[in-house]
């Protein structure tokens, strides 16, 4: 195969292992002798070594539903939590917030945020002190089992969620580790509601 110049597409195919061995050898020979193509190839190899940031991957409910099984029907257990009331936030109490990822663009979420199908939400907590937090959905799906979060104006939880309908996510914040079924009485609740028409 004779190359006039190496195209970016052919480099992509080379790196993806999609080129026949003969084409690979011809391309490497050409790149070794051509400054322009040598630079393109070197640039591609350097880019390949870059560490990519985490992709905000949507997670389906399935793993969490499986987790519920492991927690012995946590849906029943967390039913003992107080039903979320319209939020009246006291200064200093921990807060659950969220971002919405819509087609790769991220915006801050607000109360009763309208989502499109396929949108992912990423939760964060705001707290003046380290807390244990758990997050459940209105149908008692456990999105986050009890986990420690640091004191932070905005601590992103290590998860993103793609919902299949409207939901209210409730976070329980406690000073100490707790069981979903029996949270201490001095824990505080916060919740966010998203709407999917």
């Amino acid at each position: 195969m004779i190359f006039l110049h190496v195209s970016e597409l052919s480099i992509d195919r080379l790196l993806a292992g999609e080129l026949p061995a003969g084409d690979v050898a011809a391309m490497r020979d050409h790149a070794a002798a051509c400054d322009r193509c040598g630079l393109l190839l070197a640039d591609a190899l350097a880019a390949k070594r870059e560490v990519l940031p985490r992709l905000p991957l949507p997670r389906s409910r399935a793993p969490y539903i499986a987790a519920i099984g492991a927690l012995a029907a946590a849906g029943v257990l967390v039913a003992s939590w107080p039903h979320p009331q319209p939020t009246v936030r006291t200064k200093g109490t921990p807060v659950l917030g969220f971002y919405v990822s819509h087609e790769g663009r991220v915006r801050l979420g607000h109360a009763h945020e309208a989502l499109d199908r396929g949108d992912a939400i990423e939760l964060y907590t705001t707290s003046e002190a380290p807390k244990w937090v758990a997050v459940v959905g209105a149908d008692h799906t456990v999105y986050l089992p009890p986990t420690v979060v640091p004191a932070s104006r905005e601590h992103l939880l290590p998860m993103s969620i793609v919902l299949d309908g409207s939901d209210t996510l409730t976070a329980m914040f406690c000073d100490e580790r707790f069981e979903l079924a029996a949270p201490p009485s001095d824990c505080t609740l916060d919740h966010v509601t998203v709407v999917m028409p």
Partner: peptide
């Protein structure tokens, strides 16, 4: 495996 190609492009 392939994100770097898209980023470069």
């Amino acid at each position: 495996e392939h994100g770097h190609c898209v980023l470069r492009r």
